[in-house]
Amino acid sequence: MQLHFSQEIENLKTSLIKMASIVDEQVDKVITSLNTGDVELCKGIKSKDIEIDRYDNLIQTQCENILALFHPVASDLRLVMSAIMINNNLERCGDIAVNISQRIKKAGNERSLISESQIIDMARIAQEMLKNSIDSFIKNDTELASKVITSDEKVDKLNKQIFNFLVSRMQSNNELIEACTHLVVMSRHIERMADHATNIAENLVFYVDAQIIAHRKKLERNGN
């Protein structure tokens, strides 16, 4: 029973790591495309996303089977719960990579607007956060997870700055409205990706330390 259980847990971890590496690859392609203006890199992003969706379903089934057949407790239970949450966040990151690639196709040639808006800086931080959140899960590294969580504030701040910058550009030049709107939406997607990386890191902390740290700051601000 114990051997069987360990095997199932190993299979689950392997699926998550495989899925994470595809997500990481997809995100890397779109961010490089954004950075270099090489729109060709965005080709195939959408079709590759189907592989991520397959892993999403597979991992959900694996978690369901482990819960139903082995009734895990303590750290084993936290691992399965975290796997469900991390799976969900990775799948969303995959979708976001597709969304970003679509915006790049529409506004990727607006090089000066892109570089002035700091959107590339934000995308690099978000990508690093996602990479680190995946690494923290692979290595059970809560310190690295904490680093991811701290970085989220930088992304939120940049997102606001980028929004304000793009609005001001739209106000000053009507012809830029369409391109700026695409970039506002893209900026929002990148900000969401950073949120998903943060969620992954929080789930790793839950698995390793049995601490729920999600929403901590917001709850503290509200006196809870």
Binding site: M1, F5, A74
Partner: peptide, 17 residues
């Protein structure tokens, strides 16, 4: 006890180790 026991022996036992 069943979510985050303080003692390693408890954790090993309830996890079936």
């Amino acid at each position: 006890i069943f979510t985050s026991p303080s003692n390693k022996q408890t954790e090993d036992y309830i996890r079936g180790r």
